[in-house]
């Protein structure tokens, strides 16, 4: 039986509502802005009642913006596509490399194992700015500047450490005896890896993959420096809205809504995997 009084419950409800408003209001405001024209946005005093318009979305999707200073080409959809391509490819590559590596770290105690693992994790600690200048020089020499391959390669700095540390924790949690039993039953180590280790670590792999996707999607600095307009993701592409004829708030808002949506949906869908995956990986690693 619950012993909290109705006053306590009311107070609790009010506090929760306040916190929710505090966090969600900016997102709600941006959502509103995306359906407003620039004049409506800049009007003082600001009002909640307005005639919604989809011209911002139209401008983004068609790629043409009409401003008082003339017509502009907006490459937003292209940026969106770049984001999708870069993020999914980077995550796919890092899973392909990271999951077997995580297994190796979990199961085989080899010399310098812990040192190597820690070095790989340290890439997450280092600010990207540290490596950007040397990287841009190397990229130029290797003709990797403004290539998808170059960017996907660099994105491994973001994705691989995450995969390694979270998935390693999951592999370590599987009792080695289960794998031993499968091998003794007559299966090779590869079959054991694919039929026992991976299925049992699936929540961790999913969680790590999702996290890596989110971090890759949000990355700004690597593609700003190492790529040009046609290969840049939405994070960089948003800069284009600061034009000579003024800041196109409406389109920025619409662009934000469009770029946040994929990751927001993914995170909502896999919410419980994320929390489970984060805590498991953190405790073990």
């Amino acid at each position: 039986m619950d012993h909290t009084s109705s006053f306590e419950r009311l107070l609790r409800g009010v506090l929760v509502a306040l916190v929710l408003i505090f966090f969600l209001f900016p997102i709600f405001w941006i959502l509103l802005m995306s359906f407003q024209t620039n004049e409506t946005i800049l009007r003082i005093p600001p009002s909640m009642v307005f005639a919604p318009t989809i011209e911002n979305y139209q401008a983004l999707i068609t790629g043409k913006l009409e401003t008082t200073a003339g017509n502009l080409d907006i490459a937003f959809m292209r940026n969106l596509w770049n984001s999708v391509l870069l993020s999914t490819s980077s995550v796919a590559l890092s899973l392909l490399l990271g999951v077997p590596a995580a297994y190796a770290f979990a199961r085989f105690k080899f010399r310098l194992g812990e040192d190597i693992a820690f070095t790989l994790l340290s890439f997450r600690f280092a600010p990207p700015l540290l490596v950007l200048l040397p990287l841009s020089l190397y990229f130029k020499d290797l003709h990797l500047t403004n290539t998808y391959i170059g960017l996907i390669w660099v994105y491994q700095l973001i994705c691989l450490p995450l995969i390694l540390w979270i998935v390693r924790g999951y592999f370590e949690d599987i009792s080695p005896d289960i794998e031993h039993a499968y091998r003794i039953a007559g299966n090779s180590w590869w079959k054991t890896f694919t039929r026992i280790a991976i299925p049992l670590a699936r929540p961790g792999i999913a969680a790590a993959g999702l996290l890596a996707f989110i971090f890759a999607w949000n990355n700004f600095i690597f593609s700003l420096v190492l790529a040009s307009a046609d290969k840049q993701p939405v994070t960089v592409g948003a800069l284009a809205f600061v034009t000579a004829s003024g800041i196109q708030y409406g389109q920025i808002a619409a662009a934000i809504v469009l770029s946040v949506t994929p990751t927001l949906l993914l995170a909502l869908y896999a919410q419980r995997y994320l929390v489970e995956g984060l805590s498991m990986g953190a405790v073990k690693g």
């Binding site: 009792s175 031993h180 039993a181 299966n187 299925p199």
Partner: peptide
């Protein structure tokens, strides 16, 4: 000789059943 080729059967103290 790898475990899978030894034709040995083993029952573990903590059972080690495949949970999935």
């Amino acid at each position: 000789v790898a475990p899978e080729s030894r034709n040995v059967g083993m029952a573990f103290q903590n059972f080690a059943l495949f949970p999935h």
